[in-house]
């Protein structure tokens, strides 16, 4: 915090902070305002007399209605939710166990295995989707939610494992030793002591994984083809941009509604999430 006179605080803290906020929030504002603006206003030329890009006096929910009545937005939402939750669950379970094992059990090649997992995370999706497409086709998973539920963990598990590894390392070893002297088996010590203590870490891994799979684009675009199977990011962009025509109203409404679940997830766990990132375990 900046000490001293009030004007210093305003100049060096509040003003830069305000500018930064403005910069960050403007796209959201633009999204909201566009999604409630009638088409007549949206496509008005910039040199028209009543051109007013930042405000509307005639807000409308037409675009939202269009989204739900004329497109498959509701099923896209459901698809995205289902795929994101399932792949997050799979990745979390694997990530927690793998992270625990890599940070706590001394087995040969534990270190190089950890690095190996990290390297797989570094392979860009834009390359990985090519072999994955082949695999998805061979297992006849194409155009089903499972094509994504089973491929998202390829980048989510390394991510969760690494986050959890770091977190487990911060949990004092004595906690577990004490539990084991107290009469808990390794499993019980992990279940009753280590995992509850690591909840903030698990939550942040979960939120990150959920967001990553919610926003994922390439795999969803490649592995799903029929409109009713699509996820929100792919559905909105492929069905609401036809040729070179952008349906700005429904596009923005779709983007807005699509970002709400993630925002809710974040705000719900924000406290734990911050604790998880700073990796603090207080005994």
């Amino acid at each position: 915090m900046i000490e001293g006179a009030i004007w210093r605080k305003w100049v060096f803290f509040y003003a830069p902070m305000g500018l930064f906020l403005l910069f960050l929030l403007f796209p959201f504002y633009w999204m909201v305002i566009t999604s409630v603006r009638p088409d007549g206003e949206l496509y008005r030329p910039w040199n028209a007399i009543n051109y007013n890009p930042f405000w509307t006096w005639k807000p409308t929910l037409d675009h939202v209605r269009y989204l739900f009545e004329e497109t498959l937005f509701a099923s896209w939402l459901w698809n995205t939710m289902f795929i994101a939750l399932m792949s997050t669950a799979i990745s979390l379970v694997c990530g927690v166990f793998a992270g625990y094992a890599l940070s706590r059990l001394n087995f040969p090649f534990a270190g190089s295995l950890g690095t190996g997992i990290f390297i797989t995370y570094l392979v860009p999706q834009t390359l990985l989707f090519i072999p994955l497409a082949e695999i998805v086709r061979n297992y006849r998973l194409g155009d089903t939610p499972w094509s994504l539920i089973l491929t998202y963990p390829t980048f989510l598990i390394p991510f969760c494992t690494w986050l959890m590894m770091g977190y487990f390392k911060a949990v004092p070893k004595e906690l577990e030793e004490c539990a084991r002297i107290d009469g808990a088996s390794r499993w019980q010590a992990m279940l009753y002591i280590i995992i509850p203590v690591a909840i903030p870490g698990i939550l942040s891994a979960g939120i990150f994984a959920f967001t990553l799979s919610w926003n994922e684009f390439i795999y969803a675009l490649v592995f799903l083809s029929s409109p009713e199977q699509k996820t929100v990011p792919v559905g909105v962009t492929s069905e609401l941009i036809r040729g070179d025509v952008f349906f700005w109203g429904p596009l923005m409404a779709g983007a807005l509604l699509g970002s709400i679940p993630v925002a809710i997830a974040y705000s719900f766990f924000v406290e734990h999430y911050v604790a998880g990132l700073t990796g603090s375990v207080k005994g």
Binding site: P172, E174, L175, C178, A179, I193, V197, K282, G283
Partner: peptide, 8 residues
Amino acid sequence: FQNYALYP
């Protein structure tokens, strides 16, 4: 233990 190792 030295750091007590209480279950937080």
